[in-house]
């Protein structure tokens, strides 16, 4: 999904929202393209939920504007909302309806006819792994299934923009994994915005991470794509720094202690294999090799102006 496809499908400019004298969101702008997952990361109270409420038409911004699929949310809310799927903090379920009835209702709210709504509900059940509970009342579902159904509700009408507010809260680790996998899957044909206060979650799922504090985005960074960016090696008989720098895929070499190198890797080629072969052939006495994660945590704490170790 690295190809850049067309214009952003959701675009917000200079959003502002006050509660009394408190500025919950102060001049926030963002835009997300199809195929992208933007994680809004921030401590509780940073303004994530307020931002998402504005993006989904539940709160009117005091300033700024929002475009969804080319429609201004304030001027043509119905066209804009047609392209929108939203999971609030608490899944908005009606306990008296069964899972299929509920999904059909959601599809019909979005203008689907009876027949289409039935097809959409069945397809969404399958996509979100809800088939085995399809005829249960939503009020009787476990927390994990309720959360899944919350996501199902947001995607039943195949929206171009999907907004998920803390989708993994209250789930167990297995459920978190499957939910994150589902979210990645959703991004195949939609722009996804996920809010979270969990760093590793943001790192694993997002293609971009926006760190929020005091109602604005203070830092934006690429999500962890899974590739190691820095490598730390320890050698008993260390080679020259230049020797290491010549290996394809190594951008720069830093010596932190005698025999300890931190290698900056370039994104386009993987030096692991050549590094290991050279180490054996030239007998460097390699004792350790480990990935150094430039952790999102460091970035996060730096962006919030807290030094690592200070945070409780």
């Amino acid at each position: 999904m690295s190809t850049e496809r067309s214009e952003p499908v959701i675009h917000a400019e200079h959003l502002e929202r006050r509660y009394g004298r408190l500025r919950a969101v102060a001049g926030l702008s963002l835009s997300v393209k199809r195929g992208e997952i933007l994680a809004l990361l921030g401590p509780n109270g940073a303004g994530k939920t307020t931002t998402l409420s504005m993006l989904t038409g539940n709160l009117a911004p005091h300033a700024g504007r929002i475009l969804i699929a080319g429609y201004d949310l304030a001027e043509s809310p119905r066209q804009a909302k047609r392209a929108l799927g939203y999971l609030p903090e608490i899944p908005p379920l009606y306990p008296e309806l069964t899972v299929t009835e509920y999904l059909r209702f959601c599809a019909r709210l979005h203008g689907y006819g009876r027949k289409d709504a039935r097809t959409a509900a069945t397809a969404t059940c399958a996509r979100c792994g809800l088939e085995e509970v399809a005829s249960r009342l939503t009020g009787h579902l476990s927390k994990g299934y309720q959360q899944r159904l919350g996501i199902a509700q947001a995607i039943v009408h195949r929206p171009e923009v999907i907004v998920l507010d803390e989708p993994t809260v209250g789930l167990d680790p297995v459920q978190i994994r499957s939910t994150l996998a589902l979210i990645r899957d959703l991004a195949a044909d939609a722009a996804v915005i996920v809010s979270t206060h969990l760093l590793n979650e943001a790192a694993t799922v997002a293609s971009r991470v926006a760190i929020m504090a005091h109602g604005r985005i203070v830092h934006e960074t690429a999500g962890d794509t899974g590739a190691t960016r820095r490598l730390r090696i320890e050698c008993a008989r260390p080679p020259a720094r230049d020797r290491l720098a010549r290996i394809k895929g190594i951008k720069s070499v830093e010596t932190t202690a005698p025999g300890v190198f931190v290698l900056e890797l370039s994104a386009d080629s993987d030096p692991h294999a050549e590094l290991l072969r050279s180490a054996v052939e030239e007998d460097w006495g390699l004792t350790a090799m480990a990935a150094v994660h430039t952790s999102l945590e460091d970035t996060f704490l730096a962006a919030l102006g807290t030094r690592p170790g200070e945070a409780a």
């Binding site: 409420s53 989904t56 038409g57 539940n58 809310p77 119905r78 066209q79 909302k81 047609r82 929108l84 939203y86 609030p88 903090e89 608490i90 899944p91 908005p92 379920l93 009606y94 306990p95 959601c106 709210l109 979005h110 203008g111 509700q153």
Partner: peptide, 11 residues
């Protein structure tokens, strides 16, 4: 129950 948000974010 928060379902008002469902109706509000629907067209």
């Amino acid at each position: 129950s928060g379902t008002l948000r469902l109706l509000r974010s629907a067209p």
